[in-house]
């Protein structure tokens, strides 16, 4: 088994269809929702919304696929690095514990999908979380996943928990609260290891924090296309640089996106 398992080879059964980060960011409709037209800005998720339950279903499915990738990412961290050379044993033990937690979250999410009437694979899966977990530097990996993405997950779980509470849904609120408790532990794991492993390495610390910021913004983004330094396209390139992709690989991915767009407009 190789070290570093590429995101494009993530094993899935036939129900799951992957949407790349470039495809998500390349969706031109995102500008309307991101704030280009305030009349259609995405409202906060509450049961009072006409499409509230369906939005909750879609969000829950996104959480589910995120949990699978978090499980896979933690598992890969157990395998990809040598104890002693690359990481202390205790870091791997923490990752193994995270594997268990994320496996439970998958189980919870599947049960919630059944509760909400969602089919597994009903929505496209975005692979950003696992892509962040592919970083060849374990510090950047934990920062991107445990601090950035799991930190965002806390916001999402709180939203879902409130939704369940407002709707009087005892199952949803109960489940989200349990998952929330675990995520706080994961964020702390990321913070603790970031501090310990970069104690005498400011350059590595700075790079990790930059990666965290990039992941943060990419994940939050809704597809707005822009030309300035903060545009998602620039973010994606920088994300891939920090994630260890070579320039050739990044160019190839960018070319594929351009070709796909050209096919649509021709």
């Amino acid at each position: 088994m190789r070290k570093i398992f590429p995101a494009e080879e993530l094993a899935r059964d036939a129900r799951f269809i992957r949407q790349t980060t470039e495809q998500r960011l390349g969706d031109p409709r995102g500008a309307r929702i991101a704030g280009g037209n305030s009349g259609t800005r995405l409202a906060k998720l509450t049961p009072e919304l006409a499409n509230g339950p369906d939005r909750a279903r879609a969000l829950m499915h996104g959480i589910f696929t995120g949990e699978i990738q978090a499980l896979e990412g933690a598992g890969r961290t157990c395998w990809d690095f040598e104890v002693g050379e690359d990481v202390p044993l205790e870091l791997k033990l923490d990752m193994a514990r995270q594997c268990w937690d994320e496996a439970r979250h998958c189980e919870i999410s599947i049960a919630l999908a059944e509760h909400m009437g969602t089919e597994l694979g009903e929505f496209a899966e975005n692979g950003l979380l696992y892509e962040a977990a592919c970083n060849p530097d374990p510090v950047l990996r934990l920062t991107g996943v445990n601090r950035a993405l799991e930190g965002l997950a806390i916001d999402v779980f709180n939203t879902m928990k409130e939704f369940g509470n407002m709707a009087g849904d005892p199952v949803l609120e109960f489940c989200e609260d349990w998952m929330l408790a675990d995520e706080v532990t994961h964020v702390k794991m990321g913070s603790d290891w970031l501090r310990r492993l970069t104690e005498n390495d400011k350059e590595r610390l700075d790079k990790a924090l930059e990666f965290q910021k990039v992941v943060d913004r990419l994940f939050s983004f809704n597809g707005f296309r822009g030309e300035d330094d903060d545009s998602p396209i620039q973010l994606t390139r920088r994300f891939r640089e920090l994630a260890g992709f070579s320039d050739d690989e990044i160019d190839e991915i960018a070319d594929m996106s351009r070709e796909a767009k050209a096919e649509v407009t021709s």
Partner: peptide, 26 residues
């Protein structure tokens, strides 16, 4: 063993196997 089980999670398409491997890894 735990390293291998963790590494395999991403490589198996079967959802139930994925989750069991994650649990057993721990």
């Amino acid at each position: 063993l735990f390293e291998a089980l963790g590494g395999w999670v991403a490589t198996v398409p079967e959802l139930d196997v994925k989750m069991r491997l994650g649990t057993h890894c721990y």
